[in-house]
Structure formats: C-alpha cells, structure tokens
Amino acid sequence: MWDPAQYLTFADHRGRPYGELIGRVGASSPRTVADLGCGPGNLTVGLRDRWPDARVVAVDSSPEMVAAARDRGLDAQVADVATWMPASDVDVVVSNATLQWIPTHRELIARWAEVMAPGSWLAFQVPGNFEAPSHRAIRTLAASAAWRDRLGGLELRGGETVEDPVGYATILRRAGARVDAWETTYLQELEGPDAVLEWVTGTALTPVRDVLDDAGWDAFRADLAPVLRDEYPEHAPGRTWFPFRRVFVVAEIVG
C-alpha cells in the first residue's frame, strides 16, 4: 500500500527530476499525454500547464494514489503499467520513477516505441541508486538472522533493476527512436530526524511494509534507523546529505 502523504514528505526533491525530464520533450501540440505511475498527481498537473490543449490521462496501480490524483481534478485510473499500451492518439508518454518496479520494463518500453506513431515522444526516469548504502542496508537487514524468517523470501532489488543510459538508448534505438539519455546524481539535503529513513519509507521500504504487521514494521524501522544514521551522518543538526543517482531517457519515435 502506498501512502500519498509519506511520498509527498520530500515533494520538492522528488519533483525536480520530473521537471528536468519534461523539459527535454519536444512535442508541441500532442493530442493525449499519458502519465504512467502518476502517484498523487502533484506533478501530473504540470502537464496541463505545459500542454493546455492536450487531454492528460494518469495511471497508477495504487488506489490511494489514484484517489489523491483525482482530488486534483485529474483523469486518473487504477491500472497496471506493466500491461498498459498507448492508444493511437497518445503522442506523449511520461513515466517518473515507476518503471523500476516492473521487471519486464525493458521489453515494455520497446513495445511502446514500436506501436507509437512517428513524431510521438516517450520520456521516463528511474532511480539508479540500488547499490547505494541506503538500499544495501535494507537488503542486509532483511537477510539478517533477526529478519530472514519473516523477510527472507522477499525480493529486494539490486543494481540489475535498471539499465544505465547506454542500455536504455540501445533498446530504444533498435525500436526506431531517436534517443537522448543521461544520468544525474543529485546531492539532496534532507531535513529532519532520521531523514534518510523517512525518504526510503516513502519508496524503497514499501515491499517490506506490505509483508509486516504494525509491530514488525516499527521494529524493522527501529533496527534500520541507526544503520542509516551511520551511513548518512548529519552534517549539521537536522540536515543530512543524501546523494541520489537518477537515469533519464527521452525518445522521439521516428519509425
């Protein structure tokens, strides 16, 4: 279960890559713009400003997120991005920090590129920090003697989860697209106590939360907190540096 409020705790940091991604899309007057993995819709509303004459549709697998997006006046629907396919009038597909949750997303983006019309655009970004100390700490704790009985069968993602820019560019070029791909490491300054724990609670820890009861969840977070404090010490009271690598891809379909 996704928590829109928790996800929005660091809305500015989560929103910056979205703006940089959309800024590289060259579509001038798309008919329909689809946002896949729209979350609570706080970023999707910006697509209406960018393309005021387009129909903007939003998709997310979380009913809680879709409800929050609808509260913002968006045409949002609960659907599985892994099986979604663009209709013939979809000229822009956007996906922000969603495709990393789909093991088959490499094949999926190739299929989208193959069926989208020439002149349409596909833009997505995924986190590239699966080997960062934060994620390694989660995997190590889940596999420890204290937790392996409850979490040992849980598949927590590693570096193989996503491609680097070259990998994605190769996939989409073969599918008939002109590709602009890059990566950026943001040095984010998070505020508050146990800020990195709060950050991963909104995203990376959701699979753990799904399989633990309330007491187990509180205990797991309590065990993880000091590890993350050691890995990411405060550089000033209540302020923590958190490097975050992201991979961006913007592809124009040329046929």
Rank of each mutant, 00 (worst) to 15 (best):
G216N: 06
V93C: 07
I253E: 07
R48K: 13
P118W: 01
V200W: 00
D230C: 13
S29C: 12
R70W: 00
T206W: 06
V66N: 02
G15W: 00
R150F: 01
W217Q: 10
D180F: 06
T9L: 12
V254S: 11
A117M: 14
G202S: 15
T44C: 02
A68D: 05
A251N: 10
V81I: 13
V57R: 12
T203G: 08
G192P: 09
A79C: 03
R139L: 04
D223C: 09
V56W: 08
A132G: 15
Y7G: 04
R14G: 03
Y186N: 03
D3K: 04
A69D: 08
A87E: 15
Q77D: 13
V94R: 03
P52I: 10
V66S: 12
A110E: 15
T184Q: 15
L8I: 03
F220P: 05
L228K: 11
D214L: 13
E198N: 12
G39F: 12
G176C: 09
I22V: 15
S28W: 07
A97K: 05
D91R: 08
A68V: 03
R148E: 09
L99N: 02
Q125L: 06
G192R: 03
N129T: 06
A123Y: 05
P226S: 11
L212N: 01
G119S: 09
E234R: 04
R246G: 02
R239Y: 03
W217Y: 09
G46K: 05
I22E: 01
A204N: 08
A117H: 08
L187R: 15
V211N: 00
E234T: 04
Q125A: 08
G39E: 07
